[in-house]
Write a protein that binds this DNA or RNA. Structure first.
Lengths: 255, 255
DNA sequence: GCAAAAGTGTTCTCTGTACACCCATGC
DNA sequence: GCATGGGTGTACAGAGAACACTTTTGC
């Protein structure tokens, strides 16, 4: 999964900005906060900058004749190999200095013989449209392009250092998820095919950022009439075996 | 308030796109849905295209080194002469063909010797960041620039024909207002200094799009403890005089 | 006095929340 | 049997909705 890019490759791509300016709308990007659920934790998919301990929300650019929503779908597919995924625009980020690389990053890359100041592509001010998407962790095959070194899932509560305003971006995405809380939508898109009530509860506890009462959560969720109860799951634990559940079939909502 | 622009003026401005491209980020605009409340109706401030029965949400462009939120404030001030106004980004509109002028408009303007197809400025595809703002109707002095003929308030339920995707834009702004309903914020920014309970109720009925029970609304609003009761207002009607209210002082929230 | 509209109080339901109890499972 | 964790039931408080009643005003 980790793909190393050589310095020459990176410089080749970056300096060759001509293709970029021909194909895409300049100064404009889409960033995609990808949420997944695994090991009882809410995760985001991040990509690591080569040679540096900085990570980034992945994104892409908008083709000159492309709807932004279509661009977001295309970019998400490039990043996860997934189609037909829940995807939603949540905010546009446009501080004038938001996409400036820090002095520290520039210095370290200069040591690698990459001079950011000389690359027109990177000199642009970018305004970025933020989308978030909910994906089934198990189905994602993360991919990286040559700008990045590797991709990995990170616990939403233990984010690594991020470039630009990406920490704020993830925070806003989570906040939007919380405020537009939809039990069917979020669970259906983030959970695997089958799961226990406890796992589902963990998901909502992470999104809401607070513990929920076990029995009240169960009653509320079951009353929504969106779950189907399956057989019991014997875990080997010294306690009653929990039921497995799945969501009643609905079509995955896209934009 | 109505300022007529001659064809020569319009063409002068439009053809002189050089200034625009030097000063602003191309292909990028901010549109500002301005809400006001008057005559017991929720209104939006719109501007009329010269010579045509088409209206537009007003907006502007982003300077090369300007934060988008700052740009929105500047644009709003240009349009209403008001400072320190509640203003919120709600969605970015980016369909590829969203800012194309219709064939009908082009034809009519061709008859006025304005050839849209020859104006580079107008040939651009625009991606527009939508903001909405809540203003005190009485304090606004609408202004127009040379692109438009006049400005006027329109009832939210009786919108005239609008260019581009502006009808959808206003709808989304209203929908956002509804979903993030905040009794203090909305009322405080949209109502005049003093008002009756009935007037306030009308505002929320329009936003929610449904009638509310008079007594339940009164009880709920008063329990929020955000209103101050003033003297009675004798309207001359053959009924009990209603109290006037004002909001307890809070600072007007900006972005 | 009467109609119109404003102010106030009461009841009922529904939801959310806390607490309590019982049941299945493996050691 | 016993500890652990899952499933279910109950009781109380607060919010919202519907209804009823009283008060003020101009004619």
């Amino acid at each position: 999964m980790v793909k190393e890019a050589t310095n020459t490759e990176i410089q080749g791509i970056l300096f060759n900005s001509k293709d970029y300016f021909e194909q895409f709308i300049p100064q404009f990007s889409i960033d995609c906060v990808i949420f997944g659920f695994h090991d009882n934790e809410l995760k985001v998919l991040l990509s690591k900058l080569p040679k540096l301990d900085y990570w980034s929300v992945q994104g892409g650019f908008i083709q000159k004749e492309e709807d932004i929503d279509i661009a977001a779908v295309r970019i998400l597919k490039d990043l996860t190999s997934l189609d037909n995924i829940y995807l939603k625009q949540f905010q546009t980020f446009g501080k004038a200095k938001r996409s400036e690389y820090s002095y520290a990053i520039k210095q370290v890359l200069k040591e690698q013989n990459i001079d950011f100041d000389a690359i027109p592509f990177l000199q642009q001010r970018f305004i970025s449209i933020g989308y978030y998407s909910l994906v089934d962790f198990q189905k994602v095959t993360p991919s990286v392009n040559l700008y990045f070194e590797s991709s990995a899932w990170h616990d939403i509560n233990k984010l690594p250092p991020l470039i630009f305003d990406h920490t704020e971006m993830i925070g806003t995405a989570l906040e939007t998820l919380r405020q537009t809380l939809d039990y069917q939508l979020i669970g259906f898109n983030l959970m695997p095919e089958t799961f226990t009530m406890k796992e589902l509860q963990r998901l909502y506890e992470t999104i809401l950022g607070e513990p929920l009462k076990r029995n009240n959560f169960q009653e509320k969720i079951l009353n929504l009439n969106i779950l189907e109860r399956l057989e019991k799951q014997f875990t080997g634990g010294a306690h009653k075996a929990p039921y497995l559940y799945c969501f009643k079939t609905v079509s995955k909502k896209s934009i």
